[in-house]
Simulated scan of single mutants.
Amino acid sequence: MIVRISVLPLFLALPLALIGCNSKPVNAAADARHMDEEINAARQDLSKIPPPSKNLYMSISSMNEWQNPSLTVQEKMISIHVLMRDANPSDLGKGTMLRPEAARKQILNIDPANLAEALNAIPKDAWPYGRVVAIEEAHDAPPKARAQLRRNIEKAIDTLGNIGVVADEWNGDRPVGVR
């Protein structure tokens, strides 16, 4: 019995194997330096937004009333909810079918490592309460993911503190406390 081996699949696989071997080692020091630069840039830009005004946001009792950016922390990403400013300054038709508030809401899904950069990109007029964000866990996460969500929230709160943004933590449409 003669077994024939086709050489064609080997020739086709060889370039793919060589391409896969060209990865560069990760330079942790360069990555850390890049993250520090992003945080410093975000801190400088966000300092142009006034400090948080407690008399404006402490009386909010529902996430539906919250007008500053808010964060929903999930296992592998963070959703940033932004309510953009109404471009029409008049009160005529405000909140009606012609000018619904929902049309001004935007949701951005980001990698947690890009939180400082993403908050820095939000327009300054989308921060009516000052430098404060509401932060909450994802509501539909499975119970086994709660520990990871808690770690992600702590990392996000740490990043927020580094860039000078106050975190107002919420749990199921109830404020928990400010950090």
Rank of each mutant, 00 (worst) to 15 (best):
L98S: 15
S62C: 04
D36G: 04
M84Y: 05
L12V: 12
I135D: 01
P142D: 15
N109D: 10
A102S: 12
D45C: 04
Y57C: 01
A13L: 15
G95Q: 02
I80G: 02
G161C: 02
M84A: 12
A103N: 08
M97E: 10
D91F: 15
P100R: 09
A147G: 09
Q106I: 02
K54A: 14
I80F: 00
G20H: 10
V132M: 01
L108E: 04
A116Q: 02
R104C: 05
A147I: 06
E38S: 09
L8M: 11
I39R: 08
I110M: 01
A141Q: 07
N55T: 14
H139C: 10
P9H: 11
L92N: 15
G95F: 02
G130A: 04
G20W: 12
V132F: 01
E38Y: 03
V178I: 14
N152W: 00
G161W: 00
R146T: 07
P50Y: 09
D111L: 02
G130P: 03
P9R: 09
P112N: 05
A103G: 13
A41H: 08
R99S: 09
G95H: 07
A147C: 05
V73M: 03
V165M: 02
V165L: 03
A41V: 03
K76Q: 10
N114M: 07
Y57W: 14
F11T: 05
D140L: 13
S79T: 10
M84T: 06
C21E: 13
H81T: 05
A147S: 12
P143K: 09
A134L: 01
R85M: 08
E101I: 07
V73E: 01
N109E: 11
D91Y: 15
I78P: 01
L71G: 00
A17R: 13
A28S: 07
A141Y: 03
A87N: 15
L92P: 09
L160Q: 06
D111H: 07
P50I: 04
Y129W: 06
E75Y: 03
I2E: 11
S79W: 04
A103F: 10
F11A: 06
A121D: 00
R104F: 00
Q106Y: 06
A118R: 00
K155M: 07
R33M: 08
N162A: 14
S70G: 09
N120E: 13
A167R: 05
G161I: 02
I2Y: 07
M35L: 08
E154W: 06
A121S: 07
S6V: 04
R43W: 04
I163R: 05
P25C: 06
K124N: 09
W127G: 01
M84W: 03
D158M: 11
L98G: 13
